[in-house]
């Protein structure tokens, strides 16, 4: 069977056809229409309108005239009232996100590299803690930090203090503790996600080459999980500094953040252009932070 004998099939040459289709039907882009409409109407348009609002002149009680001006921005930037809370927001946001990262990283490492079968269970537990309710958790902390709360009574019992610490609740520290607490679950999830693609063997290799445990981690894992680290920092910063509920519940007088006056303008006072201006200034800061962090990521990758 089939020993070639130099026989050719008559060739029908050169029937060029159209180049093969890319495989993407035209109508596929139509499927993006729903999400396009949803995002345009629900996100892009409202934000654009808000931006326009920031240039309006306020007439109080939520009314605006048609006259466009920069005055809201000027007020926002120059008024000392907003400066304090803005600085608070940056401070607590910055410290909070860094502390969250430092606390979460070892846990993420443990979950990814030290657990074999328990991984899913722990991730599950973290998810439960995450979904247990934002407001519920803040409220729970008021119970813990309060004058008759867990910490104070506990410390009193042990004898470390004679008077309940009033600084625990209604202070900047309280806000810091609570917002850090709130961000840890998400941070852990982000970090574990970024570590998934790092091969265990790389770490083992580093140790084999002489790097001690901690050194192996910092020199190998950190650069490779840079995306997750940056993601965690960015997410943490935005969420923490934009939080307007926690300061109201546990912040007292010293722990207020910029979110509070912004929400106030829209809910009570009614100087909406000012509120918008403050928001967009906040967003501008976020963009700077994102930009800075992405630079950091590139640097770490080296």
């Amino acid at each position: 069977m089939g020993i070639g004998q130099g026989v050719l099939i008559p060739a029908r040459r050169g029937r060029l056809r159209q180049p093969a289709r890319a495989g993407r039907p035209r109508w596929s882009l139509l499927l993006l229409l729903p999400v396009g409409i949803a995002l345009s109407l629900g996100f892009v348009l409202p934000l654009a309108l808000l931006f326009v609002k920031s240039f309006e002149t306020s007439l109080g009680y939520g009314q605006v005239s048609g006259h466009l001006t920069f005055s809201s921005y000027v007020t926002a930037v120059t008024s000392p009232l907003y400066r304090t809370v803005a600085v608070n927001a940056l401070e607590i946001g910055g410290i909070g996100t860094v502390v969250t990262l430092l606390l979460s990283y070892p846990l993420a490492f443990f979950i990814r590299f030290r657990l074999r079968r328990g991984q899913n269970t722990i991730l599950l537990l973290i998810m439960i803690s995450l979904f247990a309710g934002y407001i519920v958790k803040i409220y729970a902390w008021t119970t813990i930090l309060g004058t008759y709360g867990v910490i104070n009574t506990g410390l009193e019992r042990i004898g470390l203090i004679s008077q309940p610490l009033s600084v625990l609740l209604f202070s900047k520290i309280a806000v810091l503790i609570v917002v850090t607490y709130l961000s840890i679950p998400v941070s852990v999830l982000i970090l574990v996600g970024s570590m998934q693609n790092v091969d265990r063997a790389l770490l083992e290799n580093a140790r084999d080459l002489g790097a001690g445990g901690l050194r192996a981690v910092t020199s190998v894992l950190v650069p490779l999980s840079a995306t997750g680290i940056v993601g965690s920092l960015a997410y943490g910063f935005v969420v923490i500094s934009g939080d307007y509920i926690t300061p109201q519940l546990v912040g007292g007088t010293t722990g207020q953040m910029i979110g509070v006056p912004i929400s106030d303008q829209f809910l009570n006072i009614g100087d909406q252009p000012l509120g918008s201006a403050l928001s967009f200034l906040m967003l501008a800061v976020f963009i700077l932070v994102y930009f800075g962090l992405s630079r950091l990521e590139r640097f770490k990758g080296v």
Binding site: G42, F43, L45, P46, L47, L49, L50, K53, A234, V238, V239, S241, G242, D243, Y244, G259, I262, S263, F266, Q272, G275, S276, S279, M282, L283, F286, Y290
Partner: peptide, 14 residues
């Protein structure tokens, strides 16, 4: 990438 605050007030305004 935005805090809920901004989305919230944008929608309220809208």
């Amino acid at each position: 990438a935005l805090p809920g605050l901004v989305i919230g007030i944008a929608l309220l305004n809208f």
